[in-house]
Design a protein around this nucleic acid. Sequence first.
DNA 1: GGTACCCATCTGATAAACTGATGGCATGGA
DNA 2: TCCATGCCATCAGTTTATCAGATGGGTACC
Lengths: 290, 290
Amino acid sequence: MDTRDLTTFAAVARLGGMGRAARELNTVQSNVTQRVHRLEEALGVALFERSRSGARLTAAGERLLPYAARVGALLDEAGRAARDDGSPRGALTVGALETTAALRVSPLLAAYATRHPDVDLILRTGTTAELIDRVLDRELEGAFVCGPIVHPDLVATPAFEEELALLSAPGERSIAGLLGRADLRLIILRAGCSYRQRLEELLARRGIVGLRRLEFGSLEAILGAVAAGLGVTLLPRALVGPAWRGGRLATHRLPPAEARVQTVFVRRRDMLCSSALVAFQKHVTKGKTR
Amino acid sequence: MDTRDLTTFAAVARLGGMGRAARELNTVQSNVTQRVHRLEEALGVALFERSRSGARLTAAGERLLPYAARVGALLDEAGRAARDDGSPRGALTVGALETTAALRVSPLLAAYATRHPDVDLILRTGTTAELIDRVLDRELEGAFVCGPIVHPDLVATPAFEEELALLSAPGERSIAGLLGRADLRLIILRAGCSYRQRLEELLARRGIVGLRRLEFGSLEAILGAVAAGLGVTLLPRALVGPAWRGGRLATHRLPPAEARVQTVFVRRRDMLCSSALVAFQKHVTKGKTR
DNA sequence: GGTACCCATCTGATAAACTGATGGCATGGA
DNA sequence: TCCATGCCATCAGTTTATCAGATGGGTACC
């Protein structure tokens, strides 16, 4: 069973046809047909049901498909393991929540980049759910997400602890007074944001439901909107930097049980830790205890 | 990275030379050289240190080697998964302790063979340690061994419960009297036998250490030796069948804490369960509750 | 009854792998 | 010292595998 036969097989399965797979693989249809045939002959089972509209996986094909991906991932990992001589280098792709990226990761990356100049750092941002999907798909070696995370294929290590606070325009001093306003609106970063859910739970516990939502694409935009009196938001308190302190924003502290949120670093349990990643995790831990 | 490149690489690593690998792979040395070269070029690292006496793995080669085995195992498993349509067939290779094989597995296999005629059953015997090694090496799909087994890569399910008994030649009625004899010898099956250790622990608790040991290759030989008065042994009580009951052997029952031993069925956690194995485990469970 | 799209098959061209021979090199024995 | 041995690298010729492109059969849809 050849590696390329498997990737060809996977492409046919994914695209639902040999011709389409051929186009994607930059080859011709007859070639794909031949590879699939050879794979079927080697296995002794039919992998596709051919029809006028393309090729559909048989039961045997369905069983084989996950292995194609696993073999590919394993070969990838083998290459990285062989190349990785213990000194961090190459690309390190990690993910982070936008808030974590803004608040914690920048200084970390700066120190890391200085210490390990041979590593090309790539930082992707997204919501907890998006980042976890990407870690599971091996697009990211790891990610900072909103904890706690319990997943059989993931390892989570505590990285940071944040204190969330309600932010509003200045003027209202008490949370109760703030939340009592009829025209209250929630300002959130994006649809799947972990803090959005926390904010809604927090309000629900106070009997407030069904509020209007405003969605903004960046943290600065959110803070600006809050300062302009468009609504309230829930964000790490430390995120409100000096530029926003001087009376432009009001920060309402919450009881510890609601305020504290842990940011964890997750990675696939079965995936090789590159030296670059090991060093990165060391930096994170060092930064935490410091 | 090609599959054959990896197997070639593994052969060179194992045999310590390209020429030797070529002989094993039924090809010529120049070919092996070429494959290794290509692999090294693809990875960008040297995998072997060439010398007059052969080829030795570099650090990068050491890191790559385990992946060669893993990829091979995964491809194997992929093939079996694709072929396995849910109805048990093909080869099923399991292991068992000699005592378990004699006492429990034979009737099980008979019933299983009748129920699933398309399965070629292969039973290997050995000690617990040997069998576990073979399961870990994927030479066996599973094995009956002496429990309890705790291992991160293995799953163990209880299969049988045995009552061990001290066996001796007739004449001595009490265990104390039996063990008090100065010329006492232990008769054991083989070096790594799990019951041997239990027997020695049992004697040690009674202050008896440093006894002579006799080693025999088969259960029948052991029972014969015991009957002939050569020494004592520790075996499942049920193993002493009718042929040995009529006064030729004395069975000394032990307190439950020492007598009870559980036989478990172990298999690799990460390995595909073939339909033949699933059906086999079902038979085992059925036999247990019956 | 075209037309479009699908897969299977065939054929010649191209690329890759394989074989066998050769050479360099170090070692160990006569 | 010299030869035999065993090792790997390299090269050239052959065989094999892979590829691209064309063709044909089949079905669905217009």
